[in-house]
Design a protein around this nucleic acid. Sequence first.
RNA 1: GGCAGAGUAGCUCAGGGGUAGAGCAGAGGACUCAUAAGCCUUUGGUCGGGAGUUCAAAUCUCCCCUCUGCCA
Length: 523
Amino acid sequence: MKPFYITTAIDYTNAPPHIGHAYEKVLADVMARFQRLQGREVYFLTGVDQHGQKVQKSAEKAGLSPAAFVDGITTHFTALWDKLNVRFDGWAATTDDRHKRVVRAMLQKLHDCGQLYKKSYAGFYSVRQEQFLTDKERGPDGQYGEEWGEVVELQEENWYFRLSEHVEWLKGHIRSHPDFIYPPHRANDVLNSLEGTPQDLCISRPIERLSWGIPLPFDEKFVNYVWFDALSNYITFAGYMAEECGNEGLPKFETIWPADAEIIGKDILVPAHAVYWPIMLHALGFPDDQIPKLVVHGWWNVKGAKMSKSLGNVIDPNVLSDTFTPDGLRYYLMRDIATGYDADFSDERIIMSYNKELAGGLGNLLNRSINMAQKYRSGVLTPGDFDDEINQALRQTVAEALPAYLEKMNGWDIHEGIAAAWRIVTHANAFVDSTKPFSLAKDPAQATRLDSVLYHLAEALTHVTVLLNPIMPTAMAAARAQIGWTLPEGFLVSDLKWGLLSSGHQLGTPTPLFPRLEIAEEK
RNA sequence: GGCAGAGUAGCUCAGGGGUAGAGCAGAGGACUCAUAAGCCUUUGGUCGGGAGUUCAAAUCUCCCCUCUGCCA
């Protein structure tokens, strides 16, 4: 089976990351880790989009060169991914020379086969948004609104890509490939946008207006503008044209393409990823079965409002990670949203998810289980011969969790996958109350039953630490350390069978895994 | 205006022809191994409105309303 190739949108290095950036990368990381746990080889690519006018302007304002400015912002992203344990295999920085070489080679290829042409265009141009404006952007008063910033009249020649020639192909592709976009209902938005007269795509900026970009190989008076620079990262960093361009240190393209999942936010589906991108690939000669699959996620809103700097409601993932631990944040981001839909961020809910679920549910279960085993058996497990219906029921819950978990995780329903694993936690907590090991410990006649109960608890917990490993890698490793069991090299989720812990297994020392947080309501 | 998504308990949401569900919040209780965590019980809903199909509709059909998104 080909490696699972997963990408995220590359973030624009104009401002530091917010919770939406964090969500997308954690989602990709969780899926990458899950696929590895299923035994699939994975290539996980993420990165930063560093070129463009906004960066050039921001750099000027900061009195820095674009390269220096971009390096500074990029550090905010890489530091956050490191902090949140987002472990990617490839880093797509669009200023990477390898990328620039491939972009130029791609453009030359398209130029050679007549897909690009030069044309003059006159109109109103928004400096802030880096785009020409049409009448539909005018407000009711006929003026361009403040959101466009400075608007200037421009006439200029530019290079265009014959996008319109491929629109009919794209419509057909979308209709005949229902798995092209997840969730499937998003495809309607794309088809909708393809109604009307197709336009070609402007792909350049004159170098005097924008110098911070990749020069066109066949006309050095222009730099490439955004799409061929940004979208193509998904193939350039997968090794596309690596040999022709002398690129090294990249995967073998034929082995990993097409991408199994390009994770993007719903705001960049139309037109960038669902129109420009597949058409670019099609024009480059990619056959239909080499078009990547898109996974479209929703947004984190704050109190029902869109997050924005002007509202002052931008949530800083660094602060959340410091407060709730990286894994506490990862857990919240995965469990409180349905993939593809929007969710509301709330302090109350993240506190609840940490204190109630992680601390009180899973953490406390681990703590009480190990503590009792230490107290009554010096931490040594003996499965023994005792069995009864209560034990069987717990084993059944553990066994049933796996297929449910796999189905949900493979279908991108991460929050349902968590819920599937969590049924073990809930059942195990109830199991303690129904078996009362602390009472059994007082009766020597119940010794074998107590052994079996303690064993069942430890074993069930061990299963949980495997299932939740993609979501909370650090915390689950810490939990396994307390259990005294390490994930064997190459261990797969399919290896999960009752009896991971052998007779005579020595448990470690119990320590609160998620110390309960005393946080006053801030709002 | 077109298309799509959503509207179910106070909150967040699941379900999708056969007695309305979960988690959280609220109320009560028993317990003590544990991070005062956990467990049990329980209050709470004309499933957005209306009509239709059906023995039976939250679920299917039609009309309407509200919110969100994409497009115009």
